[in-house]
Design a binder for these strands. Structure first.
Ligand code: FES
Ligand code: FES
Lengths: 150, 150
DNA sequence: TAATTCTTGACTAATTTACTCGGGAACATA
DNA sequence: TATGTTCCCGAGTAAATTAGTCAAGAATTA
């Protein structure tokens, strides 16, 4: 599993866009986001490109162009953003294939699957809006899966 | 945040030791663990060295030597193992300093703190024994922190 | 003494990260 | 239509990191 600065920049930049959107409903330039959030503009280009291709952002060129969220800020989950830009958010060593001990499932496999589920549940339970308003999550059933069963 | 093969090998190898310990209460050789779990022995040396320095394993040299857990297998949490061998399990970009936007706290900081808490809570709620017996966690209160507060 | 097993540190190839750079395409405005 | 603006795309790269290997040495047992 990798959570790199690319993913972190992506979340920060998306939060910035979400905040701008309540102020003015137009597009926000890469250079403005980059300046405000202290992110290299040329790197942010790559990141926004991926977010656009994932359908999370909408872009417009030319003067008054820039980016905006495709959805409302309470509909965009942090998990979507991260998986759009990160190469590998899977904790299994086998990419889910169950083959990492000489072609068979290793003894830690099921644990990594559970770990993945926990991380994904967390990341998909929080919207940009939740993070901006400092709410702890938007899905009530989150956490149920963790309560001991045996 | 990085979860590399080093951490994954560490968990797998610790699980192996835990399983051996119920069979024979002596020491288990690196080469045996390496063979069973398909881990390069010379790499596993480094890993076990760190686990020993962290107090998780106990070592003995010479014939009949090897490694064993310092505690019972239900007292060793996966989180301990991972933090002993991984360089960086922190998701914040500022290493908790709150300085990554030109010296000030970035807008994602609190979110990454929450993410860290979630991951740590998960990893520290599961013992080697839980994983071996496929239990879902040993701490009942786990999950409470995730239930939406507002 | 000889064989066994851990201990330590140095070393390295391959991969990945975190960027930069440059040219091009679409768009708005005058 | 000319001009400036902004995104679009791909190539390139230095530095860091990972995933190991290797060899000499120390402790232990028989
Ligand atoms: S992690 Fe899937 S088989 Fe090992
Ligand atoms: S993650 Fe801590 S300030 Fe940005």
């Amino acid at each position: 599993m990798n959570l790199t600065t690319k993913g972190k920049y992506a979340v920060t930049a998306a939060l910035d866009l979400a905040m701008q959107q309540t102020i003015a409903d137009g597009f926000t330039k890469i250079s403005d986001v980059a300046k405000r959030q202290d992110i290299p503009a040329s790197y942010l280009e790559q990141i926004f490109s991926r977010l656009r291709k994932a359908g999370i952002l909408h872009a417009a060129r030319g003067p008054n162009g820039g980016f905006k969220l495709s959805k409302q800020r309470d509909e965009v989950m942090i998990g979507e953003i991260i998986t759009a830009v990160e190469r590998n958010m899977d904790a299994t060593q086998c990419s889910g294939e169950g083959i990492c001990n000489s072609g068979t499932k290793c003894i830690a496999h099921n644990f990594w699957i559970d770990f993945n589920d926990n991380v994904n549940e967390f990341l998909m339970s929080r919207s940009l809006d939740d993070v901006i308003t400092n709410r702890r999550g938007s899905v009530e059933q989150t956490g149920q899966a963790l309560i001991a069963t045996g």
